[in-house]
């Protein structure tokens, strides 16, 4: 997901510095687990517990982007890492390039902790075998100003309403814009659009452009534009934008419109060339402890996949209304379409 790429340059640089630790020689004695993940997904408290329990050492490499994960995994055919955490739409490509191995759920007893909505996510099942285990989730919701809207808008079509011309911001992300528009248009499979559906989405997004004040570049950018005033609606980049806006004095609400919204799930997966598959499975299992899930929700504001109460506490009660991201038919074509939209001058 791009949402993290923008968080801040310093984080990326720090992550880069940490990532270089991957090149350190492996420790000779004892078992070692090599993890490639996002910051916040391998925190000290559960890493330490895992090390003690299994008598292993854990080496963590942080990543700043999905690109980086692919580059690092393909460079060695997956031999450099044992487990990775990545978002659902990447699995088609990862399994195509044979960089992952299926997860043996018999070795992950705590998978019984998984909430029903996360037990059979189709985007991570190939040939009937699960290739990952869901860990954290969130959505691409609609954020609105409660000063303007007394009740939450119930449809994405509000972003096309000329009444709010120039008072709308939309994230600059091809796939999210296209999938959300496809949901609004009622297409059954927003990840596999026909040529005709592509044309309809394009026309619809061009129509929206006249309303859009700005296609914002990232998490903080969206918050900063909205908080400065003059904006009523935003296709957001994720739940944490709402509390960020409130802390900056904006009165906002967050809603999942009736057409549904995009959901993303970060899942743990095991590299095809994991050195110690038992240990890798043990890590995946440990990540499904309810305590870990609770911590994820409390700390990051994202949903977890094991503790429903913790999700409810932070307002993430709508996992069943989300359309979880899958690999689209052709990413290049979607980027192409989005670039065309951005390159077309607004028809007044």
């Amino acid at each position: 997901m791009k949402r993290r790429e923008f968080l801040s340059l310093t984080t990326t640089m720090a992550a880069g510095a940490l990532a270089s630790s991957a090149f350190k020689p492996a420790k000779a004695a004892g078992k070692e687990l090599r993890i490639l993940t996002w910051e916040g997904y391998a925190d000290d408290q559960w890493v330490k517990a895992f090390e003690q329990k299994t008598g292993s050492t854990v080496s963590i490499s942080y990543t700043g982007s999905v690109d980086e994960i692919f580059a690092k995994m393909t460079a060695s055919g997956g031999a450099d890492f044992d487990v990775i955490a990545i978002e659902t739409s990447s699995y088609k490509r990862l399994t195509q390039e044979k960089l992952l191995q299926p997860v043996d759920l018999a070795k992950v007893p705590q998978s019984s902790n998984l909430l029903p909505a996360f037990r059979s996510v189709s985007a991570i099942i190939f040939d009937g075998k699960p290739y990952a285990v869901p860990f954290a989730w969130g959505s691409i919701p609609l954020i609105y100003s409660t000063d303007t809207f007394k009740t939450a808008p119930d449809s994405w079509s509000i972003l096309w309403d000329p009444k709010y011309k120039g008072r709308i911001i939309v994230m600059d992300d091809a796939n999210n814009a296209i999938v959300t528009t496809a949901l609004l248009l009622g297409f059954k499979d927003p990840f596999n659009l026909s040529a005709d559906q592509f044309l309809q989405v394009k026309a619809k997004l061009l129509e929206q452009k006249a309303n859009v004040a700005s296609y914002y570049a990232g998490f903080d950018d969206g918050v900063s534009i909205f908080a400065q005033g003059g904006i009523d609606l935003m296709m957001s980049m994720g739940e944490p934008q709402a509390p960020m806006l409130r802390s900056r004095g904006a009165n906002v609400g967050l809603t999942i419109p009736k057409e549904g919204a995009i959901g993303w799930i970060d899942c743990w997966a095991i590299s095809a060339k994991a050195r110690d598959t038992e240990l890798a499975h043990a890590w995946v299992d440990a990540m499904l402890e309810k305590a870990v899930g609770t911590y994820i929700s409390e700390k990051t504001g994202y949903g977890n996949t094991t503790n429903g109460d913790a999700n409810e506490k932070i307002g993430l009660t709508y996992s069943d209304r989300l359309v979880f991201l899958q690999a689209p038919e052709d990413f290049g074509r979607r980027i192409e379409l989005w670039n065309e939209i951005k390159a077309t001058p607004v028809q007044q």
Binding site: K2, D67, F70, S89, F331
Partner: peptide, 12 residues
């Protein structure tokens, strides 16, 4: 930005 868009998720 057009160049940038070919990297990331586009993988082109």
């Amino acid at each position: 930005r057009a160049i940038w868009s070919q990297f990331g998720m586009a993988f082109n």
